[in-house]
Simulated scan of single mutants.
Amino acid sequence: MASHIGKLPVAIPAGVEVTFNGQNFSVKGPKGSDSYTLPEGIRGKVEGTEVLLTAVDDERQTRSNHGLSRSIIASMVKGVHEGFTKTLDIIGTGYRAQMKGKGIEFSLGYSHTITVNPPEGIEYELPNQNQVIVKGTDKQVVGQAAANIRKLRAPEPYKGKGIKYTDEHIVRKAGKAGK
Score class of each variant (00 low, 15 high):
residue 91 I to A: 08
residue 88 L to R: 02
residue 105 E to H: 01
residue 114 I to H: 07
residue 92 G to K: 05
residue 170 I to M: 09
residue 111 S to P: 14
residue 167 D to E: 14
residue 81 H to S: 15
residue 89 D to V: 01
residue 159 K to D: 11
residue 137 T to C: 15
residue 139 K to G: 11
residue 130 N to E: 10
residue 104 I to M: 00
residue 172 R to E: 06
residue 79 G to L: 11
residue 106 F to D: 01
residue 164 K to Y: 02
residue 129 Q to C: 15
residue 170 I to L: 07
residue 124 Y to E: 00
residue 91 I to G: 04
residue 149 I to V: 04
residue 118 P to D: 10
residue 163 I to G: 04
residue 108 L to F: 02
residue 109 G to H: 03
residue 96 R to D: 04
residue 93 T to M: 12
residue 156 E to H: 03
residue 102 K to R: 15
residue 81 H to W: 05
residue 162 G to A: 13
residue 98 Q to E: 13
residue 103 G to F: 00
residue 158 Y to F: 14
residue 158 Y to V: 14
residue 137 T to L: 14
residue 130 N to D: 05
residue 79 G to P: 06
residue 133 I to Q: 10
residue 92 G to I: 07
residue 158 Y to C: 11
residue 150 R to F: 08
residue 93 T to L: 15
residue 142 V to I: 06
residue 170 I to E: 08
residue 105 E to W: 00
residue 151 K to H: 11
residue 161 K to I: 13
residue 165 Y to H: 03
residue 131 Q to V: 00
residue 117 N to M: 05
residue 165 Y to F: 10
residue 126 L to Q: 09
residue 130 N to P: 05
residue 148 N to A: 12
residue 107 S to Q: 13
residue 118 P to V: 04
residue 144 Q to D: 14
residue 137 T to M: 09
residue 145 A to I: 05
residue 151 K to N: 10
residue 102 K to C: 03
residue 115 T to V: 15
residue 95 Y to S: 12
residue 147 A to H: 07
residue 138 D to G: 04
residue 111 S to A: 09
residue 111 S to W: 12
residue 134 V to D: 01
residue 112 H to R: 07
residue 130 N to A: 10
residue 141 V to M: 12
residue 97 A to S: 06
residue 108 L to W: 02
residue 144 Q to K: 11
residue 102 K to T: 14
residue 103 G to A: 06
residue 160 G to E: 10
residue 116 V to E: 13
residue 83 G to W: 08
residue 123 E to N: 11
residue 133 I to C: 02
residue 99 M to T: 05
residue 93 T to Q: 11
residue 157 P to Y: 02
residue 124 Y to V: 00
residue 113 T to K: 09
residue 102 K to S: 12
residue 144 Q to C: 06
residue 108 L to R: 03
residue 170 I to R: 07
residue 115 T to R: 07
residue 108 L to Q: 03
residue 168 E to A: 05
residue 89 D to S: 03
residue 133 I to H: 14
residue 122 I to F: 12
residue 132 V to A: 01
residue 129 Q to D: 15
residue 97 A to P: 09
residue 101 G to C: 02
residue 116 V to M: 05
residue 116 V to Y: 02
residue 165 Y to D: 03
residue 84 F to V: 10
residue 155 P to A: 13
residue 118 P to Y: 06
residue 87 T to M: 07
residue 96 R to Q: 15
residue 134 V to H: 01
residue 147 A to V: 11
residue 170 I to P: 04
residue 147 A to Q: 15
residue 119 P to G: 12
residue 140 Q to H: 15
residue 89 D to P: 04
residue 81 H to D: 14
residue 87 T to K: 10
residue 103 G to V: 00
residue 115 T to Q: 09
residue 86 K to E: 10
residue 116 V to F: 07
residue 130 N to G: 08
residue 122 I to C: 09
residue 161 K to S: 13
residue 88 L to V: 07
residue 145 A to H: 07
residue 142 V to K: 01
residue 127 P to K: 00
